[in-house]
């Protein structure tokens, strides 16, 4: 018994190799997050420690020099909150 699908087993590359580089950008890793980082920008000293420690490279620098997480990728691990020197990052439950 088969399941109709637009992308079938025949469409996989041999050995499930990924032949186009850099496509992990398309892989949404933030869809099972239970908490998201909220930044109090007034207290951000623009040091970038959150950016350095983010294991998913989900944090980017905004035009004003402060940092924020891209929720497409952020898994909500809370490392940025732990590392932030000024305590300007707070993890907020996604349910709230």
């Amino acid at each position: 018994m088969t399941t109709p699908s637009e992308f079938t087993w025949r469409d996989l590359e041999p050995g499930v190799i990924i032949s186009d580089a850099g496509n992990s950008r398309e892989y949404k890793t933030g869809d099972w997050r239970s908490a998201r980082p909220v930044v109090d920008k007034a207290n951000c000293i623009k040091c970038g420690v959150c950016y350095l420690f983010c294991p998913d490279i989900a944090i980017t620098q905004a035009a004003d020099g402060t940092f924020e997480a891209d929720l497409y990728y952020c898994k909500g691990c809370g490392i940025c909150e732990q590392e932030c020197y000024t305590g300007c990052i707070t993890m907020v439950d996604e349910e709230e």
Binding site: L12, G15, G22
Partner: peptide, 25 residues
């Protein structure tokens, strides 16, 4: 100079298809 990925993660979404393809090969 022409990067590819060999041995990436495959979860339940496409593992059945990967094993089908391997068996057919």
């Amino acid at each position: 100079d022409d990067p590819i990925t060999i041995g990436a993660l495959t979860m339940s979404e496409y593992l059945t298809e990967a094993k089908m393809a391997q068996n057919e090969a």
